[in-house]
Amino acid sequence: MTVPSILLTLIFTCIHCLFPPVWAGQTADTQMLVNGCLGCHGPRGISLGPAIPTISGMDEELFVKTMENYQKDKWYSTVMGRLAKGYTRADFQAMANYFSQFPFTRYPQATDPEKVLAGRLLHREHCEECHKNDGFSSQKQTGRLAGQWLLYLQYTLLDYQQGRREAPEKMRDRFKMLLEKQGPGSLEQLSHFYASQLDPPSEPDPSARPDLVIDSQNPASSQLPVPFPFSQRNVPPPSNGDFQPTTHPLLQPSLHPFEPPVIPSQQNALPLPNGDSQP
């Protein structure tokens, strides 16, 4: 754990002590609304399931826009679009406000170092202009990519590639250029790069809320949810502190196997001259 992340953890711990039960400014109406979200996205929108994105710390405007894209079926989804149709813009704004209060949280994930390396170069050439600070920043037009779940990133990029997720014009052009130049393998490399990112490369964007990183060696040091063990019966109760130190289930592949999707090279919505060039 780096010094800044320890500091952030401490800051968060202090906030946590000040407002243990209910978060500042939160009304019962908002609580009622977001209760529906938490069942799938996890407590405070911090996901542990790799297909479901973490939505804590999300820019409010981006959150509302995102929900409207699902609501209007501009973006493909499994259940999100169906559920989004049950809420109003005002509901989305209340939800956005709630989730923006909590820090975006990153868990260490297994990624392929070669893809990470290649992905970093691709990101800096094609994506950094909008997804600033190696994808750590989140603004109204750009989602936070760094530290998002690999599986979710892979599927989201696949949806852009297949034309199932409408992109802003600028992104559409960049995306097309990326695929033409580097081939669809580049999406896989970008996904691994973003998923691998735990600490920002430079000083965080001052407008951004502080993020948190879970220390995989000592998750109990953090005030954030750590995945509980699958078999609690065999785990002795911890002597102190709130958390049972454990490793993430995803880091125990035998307990929770999942295979990342294969981004196909043959089913492209966009024409590609060369399939698999490596940078």
Binding site: G39, C40, S47, G49, F228
Partner: peptide, 10 residues
């Protein structure tokens, strides 16, 4: 499966 993890975590 991701839902199962998040739901039971909550």
């Amino acid at each position: 499966h991701s839902w199962f993890l998040n739901f039971t975590q909550g």
